[in-house]
């Protein structure tokens, strides 16, 4: 059936032009507002954090170089964030060691070795992993994973670095798998056909053609997965044991920057030194994720130029 308008054509064209302008304006506002919001958040974090830098009791060298985190000490308040920094780095690092090989494997399998219903089912399941809320992951870490680790490893306590890293790797896996799969699929079919015409086996095709061809996309996937892992809060708070500690083994409890903010900000009086130092750890965290995201952006752009 042909749609019929109630308006005469002259009016209709004006209406279309008008609505077009409106929609354009709307889209433009949406685009700018996201930039504005990011800038506003940045401004807010920095504004809350910076006054502490000039306080007499605060020393930046202590903040970055000491493990002694005693924000509410009755004797002498000390803000040493090194333990938290090492906690974040170690949990993220170990989780990447697990999630990158597993994620790459899964993506290669999904994109090259499996078809039809298996592929669809697997994709849905992996995307479902991304839909599990982080408190639920934390709960799994606290109850299930901690028991498994106490049974499978000589750990004295089940909530520790390894537990947090395992949970985080499961959480960043969907990001890594989906993005890597996209990258692999975007390798032109001509490359596949050429390789097959030359008699390459599937393994040779994957290893020699697809992985190098998609390397920028894969790196971006890994870095975005890293960003996810660095920023995760609730799950690591529950799974790592939340003890300020320089870990000497995989089975030591640790505390991350994010978990520390989550645990303490609610109770720090607004405007106090403790509150501002927590925002300073937020700035630190922001710096880390910014570097990772810029790196990802730069690599993706490099990839486009290279092609």
């Amino acid at each position: 059936m042909k749609p019929r308008s109630l308006l005469p054509s002259r009016w209709r064209s004006r209406w279309i032009r008008c609505s077009e302008t409106l929609i354009e304006a709307w889209i433009r506002i949406s685009g700018f507002s996201s930039v504005f919001l990011v800038l506003a958040i940045l401004f807010f974090i920095f504004r809350e954090a910076f006054p502490v830098l000039s306080r007499p009791g605060f020393s930046l060298t202590e903040f970055l170089g000491s493990v002694e985190w005693y924000p509410t000490s009755a004797q002498r308040v000390r803000y040493g964030a090194l333990g938290l920094l090492v906690g974040t780095a170690s949990v993220t690092g170990v989780s990447l060691l697990i999630s990158v090989p597993a994620g790459l494997g899964a993506a290669i399998f999904l994109s090259e070795f499996c078809t039809g219903r298996t592929r669809e089912t697997l994709k849905v399941v992996i995307e479902l992993l991304a839909a599990i809320p982080s408190v639920v992951w934390g709960f799994i870490g606290l109850t299930v994973m901690s028991q498994v680790l106490r049974w499978a490893t000589p750990a004295a306590v089940g909530v520790n670095l390894l537990n947090g890293a395992l949970i985080l790797s499961l959480m960043s896996l969907p990001v890594i798998v989906s993005l890597t799969e996209d990258a692999l699929r975007s390798v032109p079919d001509a490359h596949r056909e050429a390789a097959e015409a030359l008699g390459a086996t599937r393994w040779q095709l994957t290893w020699r053609v697809l992985l190098p061809g998609a390397r920028h996309g894969i790196l971006a996937a890994v870095l975005l997965g890293t960003g996810r892992a660095v920023g995760e809060t609730m799950a690591v708070l529950m799974a790592t044991g939340n003890a300020v500690n320089l870990p000497t083994s995989l089975l030591d409890p640790v505390r991350t920057l994010t978990a520390n903010i989550a645990a303490e900000l609610g109770e720090a009086p607004a405007g106090s030194e403790h509150y501002r130092v927590l925002f300073l750890t937020g700035v630190l965290l922001f710096g880390i994720t910014l570097v990772i995201n810029l790196l990802a952006e730069w690599l993706v752009r490099g990839g486009r130029k290279g092609r």
Binding site: W69, A74, V157, V244
Partner: peptide
Amino acid sequence: NDRDFRLGTLELN
């Protein structure tokens, strides 16, 4: 007696 806790204590919420 208002002394600090030792680092490495698991602090749960």
